[in-house]
Amino acid sequence: MNLRDFKKIIYGERELSELMVSARKETLKHFGRTIQLYAPLYISNECVNSCVYCGFNRCSGIKRSTLTIEQIIGEAKHLLSEGFQHLLLLTGEDQVKVPVGYIREAAVELKKMFTSLSIEIYPLTEEGYKTLVDAGVDGLTIYQETYHRPTYQAVHPDGPKRDYGWRFASPARGARAGIRKVGLGFLLGLYDWRFEAVQLAEHLQSLLKNYWQTQFQVSFPRINPAETAYQVKHPVGDDDFLRLVCALRLLFPEIGFALSTRERAAFRDRIFQFGITQMSAGSKTSPGGYALAQKSGKQFEIADARTPREVSRALRRSGYEPVWKDWERELG
């Protein structure tokens, strides 16, 4: 499939049911009947940005906290005991209260405990990313949020995040710094998903050409209109969501796709076979939300509240093997 065919599918050509059959086949061929599981670990919700859709928005008045290294280890132990080997470390954006040195320190400790460690933090310079690679980070997730510049400016009224180009070039800087796995995505609901899908595909194609040794991934974070004060301007329905996943699967058969607990349990169970290769489970989106049971502000509400064991059982019932470990420290 090429970009032209992809556009046709995105804009409605071919029945969804027909796409689902092809997408399922491609996913099966490349990934088998397996789903890799990972857990997010928020270590801070401090933020100087004012993204209008986000719970960490600096104007939101939530309870702020940044975990100490000891607290991070405590949270991590809890996730380890649940079986996780792949961890995603997250922060808001505050380079003063949450400097790279602190993230590095956390990464060093976490890499001792987990096989694979990814980050979803504010954009860094190539040097900054290198520092974290040396500390053991092997994955980076950074969403563009929206590829539509006027919308980007509107939903990021101030703060360093206003710089569209700096964010857009972050995956490339991460790849150049030697991060093995780099995840992209846009926030579903900010602008017309069809436009976003085509931009994302072009972004990914260019990254694949230039950083051929990097393992790219795509995520599908959808704003849940019921659980945010933000008025979703371009809601993405379940069928459109599924069309997006299937179309991207057909254009990029070998790329891993992640699906988070932003989505409802029933929806996740229904659609994962059509392209998803990794899922989070039992997620908490506030710092100290696991073992510490802190009541700090959340980034967003989760819609799938099942425990990791329950998600794992549901996968097995569907004939899929939950994969807790798919990496090795020796690989970086």
Partner: peptide, 12 residues
């Protein structure tokens, strides 16, 4: 003369 890989199976 058949060697098998162990990835991608639905269960052990």
């Amino acid at each position: 003369r058949l060697l098998l890989g162990t990835g991608k199976f639905s269960s052990p």
